[in-house]
Design a protein around this nucleic acid. Structure first.
Lengths: 315, 315
DNA sequence: TATCCTTACGGAATTCGTAAGCATG
DNA sequence: CATGCTTACGAATTCCGTAAGGATA
């Protein structure tokens, strides 16, 4: 068993069982990949891939059993390398962070600014994606840190640590009738609503609040991000419901007014997620601490070991 | 990076940095081992071992950081092989169980008998040891399953699952004065006591009960196991305190009488421990189930993944 | 001086890429 | 017939063990 064999298997699965592609990705020849896979299969004594004639079409039962271990071994090998890079490269290297739009646009900028000031030699990579994409980036090792307001760690391979809590705000054009008197769910439901797509930025908690109140608001537009919502509220298409952080002093809008809606919708929690059992470079832990000061390197490392629910760090 | 390099590093640490020994253990030449280590160090860019001239004397700081990952990679590689053996070897293979004397002598025999009947092609290896030795055997991969009445899983690399609860019994020769009337801690403390060594078979809970009652019994003999205790009680050296399972119908003694002491000492728990995150052969899970029927394969596997304290299975 | 690690060297085994073969959609 | 995996083969590389060298307790 060697790592090239494992890499070949992992890439073969990732690239839809096309060994020609795998060869390109691994910078080697196609017969080479074919051999690596065959050799591993021989050594283990099982067929990992289903072969339809001379074409790979899927995973066999043993393949399914073996694959998680292949991926784990390769991720662990990276952790080992990171462990030594800590000593060779000091405070330099690459840090890859995946976040949803809301986080990247409103929560992360100050953390990124501060981090770049304290860690000038770290190349920071930011990837935007849906919660599912972020999960995937963490699992494949594309990203080291994931940040989203959605539960990321439904997978045992990941640990999520709560960072901060936030609430929604209602946004209307200046002089809107809703501004006269207190905002209630009932009054809100009288207007067309503009808010996030399902699964994004606390949309679930918005739906939940309305349905618990027996209300069915007319949702006229769903968007990926607060900027789009604000744009259409400005065009008077409806009333916006978005994360209040998107309307704070730094992101005020000349013609729009925000009303705090924490009394209407449940509190949401933004979490940082990392691979369970993995190792990150020291500065990765420092980035998390910059983003959420209570998530010190020790806290995050302990959560990654996580014998019990240590990951429930206090907010 | 390759597995032979990792094996060389691991063995070098285990064998006290003597590469000549390592070479013998790995069935290779000593210069070979030397090279493997040097190559890994070159690739990682760090020195793993402290060299005093031409002699290895210890681990460097990077070495300490890297070693856990080396061990984890090698254990994972074994898990991968086990995953495929499940398909090649079916219900045959080797199962290594480590247990304390008490467990091996009184609790395990029926499980072993039943397991051998249902799994005739599994070669069962039993290792006796102290709780610390059992922990070590699990960590190094010598044993797959550990059984002890002592907390084994103080280490994050292990998961412990409670199997059954048990209490102590007081053992005296036939006609002993203690048999007249109820047994209390106070009356017990009037006699010389024979019981287990510190750290073994609930000795801690015995000490605790006496000290809470403000009593200091005279302990005239401490033993590793119940058989020794019974022998000396029979010689009238004192009053025995041992696990009640050692005096049940199957292990009754012609001249000795047991008195239940569950009202005197705290309840003890015997646990099964396995490596967290590891994979065992199917029959290993079945052995655990044979030993403790509520610890089904699914329960144990879930505990090994253990995002939270799922390992607290009901008794 | 005995033990133990490193360096040097040569043969053997492995590895890998090119080219040809063949099955599938 | 274009795509894609396997087999075949030869060259290059890597690997590994023996033998010699040097350092330490």
């Amino acid at each position: 068993m060697n790592f090239q064999q494992l890499r070949s298997v992992r890439e073969a699965v990732r690239r839809g069982f096309n060994l020609t592609e795998v060869a390109q990705a691994l910078h080697t020849s196609q017969p080479g990949v074919s051999r690596q896979i065959r050799e591993l299969e021989d050594e283990l004594g099982v067929e990992i891939f289903v072969r339809a004639g001379k074409r790979l079409t899927g995973l066999t039962a043993p393949g399914v059993a073996v694959l998680p271990w292949v991926e784990r071994l390769l991720l662990d090998a990276e952790s080992l390398q990171r462990a030594s890079q800590e000593f060779t490269q000091g405070q330099s290297g690459v840090l890859s962070v995946a976040a949803t739009h809301s986080q990247a646009r409103y929560a992360l900028p100050t953390a990124v600014r501060d981090f770049r000031a304290t860690h000038p030699h770290v190349r920071l990579q930011l990837h935007q994606g849906s919660p599912e994409q972020i999960t995937q980036m963490l699992l494949t090792g594309v990203a080291d840190i994931g940040i989203a307001s959605h539960v990321l760690a439904e997978r045992p391979e990941l640990v999520a640590l709560p960072c901060y809590r936030w609430t929604h705000a209602v946004v209307v054009p200046e002089g809107h009738a809703l501004l006269d008197g207190p905002v209630t769910l009932e009054r809100l439901a009288d207007y067309p609503v503009i808010t996030y797509d399902t699964g994004l930025t606390g949309r679930d908690s918005i739906d939940g609040a309305f349905s618990r109140a027996g209300l069915k608001p007319e949702i006229v537009l769903t968007a990926h991000d607060a900027d789009v919502i604000k744009t259409y509220v400005d065009l008077d298409l409806g009333v916006g419901i978005l994360a209040s952080i998107a309307m704070d002093e730094d992101h005020a809008h000349p013609r729009l007014r925000a009303v705090d809606a924490r009394h209407l919708f449940p509190i949401n929690t933004t979490s940082v997620a990392v691979r369970r059992g993995g190792l990150l470079r020291g500065f990765a832990y420092e980035f998390v601490e910059t983003f959420a000061s209570h998530l010190t390197p020790d806290v995050v490392r302990a959560a990654q070991q996580a014998p019990s629910d240590t990951q429930q760090a206090p907010l």
